[in-house]
Amino acid sequence: MWTLCNADGVEASPGARTRGIIGDPANPGGTDSPASRKNGKHVLKIGRLTETTLSQSFHPGRHVRPKKKAELEQVEGPGAPARHILAKDEVVVGRSREADVQIESEMMSRKHMLVRRVGPEFEYEDLDSKFGVYLNSVKAFAAVLRDGDVLQLGKVVFIFHEGG
């Protein structure tokens, strides 16, 4: 027979709400296990976990698995195919050695485009480049990026992947 108790071994009152994780089923009654025997009964200690502490422990959004980082997949231009992970909050794409994503290509300005993280999203901005940035074939100065967007900078083409 199984009885539910708190950490002090006090038996839960009939009908008490007892949600929670109750020990290691592979090692019931182990040294640190909340499961043990008391007066011939199997006891599951549920500690001091109340509804309040449970909801704090399992707050939505705190236990999200690490996500795959967003990236620019280069599908055209020198060096393609290549994947450029957007690991920093601001990534500059251009010909310059100072650019985070450096691509030596004609029609690419020294500092051509900035990709910036804004909260959970990424947006890009044309850094006043000579030939501009084309978003899905439309010349756009800036935009919030969405998964699968195609960015063309001269002869270099990227596909943006949101990650996750």
Partner: peptide, 10 residues
């Protein structure tokens, strides 16, 4: 093109 929220044209 389709007008798109968050898009800026110069």
């Amino acid at each position: 093109f389709g007008a798109r929220e968050g898009m800026t044209l110069k």
